[in-house]
Amino acid sequence: MPADYLPILFFAVVAVVLSAIAVLMPALFGPKRPTSVKLAPYESGKLPIGPARRRFSIQYYLYAVLFILFDVEIVFLFPWAVVFRDLAPRWLGLAEAAVFVLILLLGLAYVWKKGGLEWE
């Protein structure tokens, strides 16, 4: 029922309002006397050793794509897992999900074999 989700909506509204206050109040009322040191990116008090907006390694992209694929796998397995105990021939449901997972496991083996999981 959508009514069950009202607490989540309430939480989201409170989060938006609170963070808006936290961002807007200092911007409106805070004194602004910037120096180059104050404007530097803050990371545990260490001096920056280069620009923060540098290019990231292409390797992250493969990880992100792999994540999406296995994410979608979970989406398919989730409704199956909810009803697994009630399936009429339970072994058939188990076998079908096993085939589904095994096909994707082949893919994981392929990525592993090709060195896609190695960090260079």
Binding site: I58, Q59, Y61, L62, V65, L66, L69, V72, E73, F76, E96, V99, F100, V101, I103, L104, L106, G107, L108, Y110, V111, K114, G115, G116
Partner: peptide, 22 residues
């Protein structure tokens, strides 16, 4: 349901081939 698994496998292999070329 099972064909979706094959589709995901194809996408996975394609992603590896494209990303490993560089």
């Amino acid at each position: 349901f099972e064909v979706a698994s094959v589709l995901l496998l194809v996408a996975l292999v394609g992603a590896v081939i494209i990303a490993r070329e560089q």
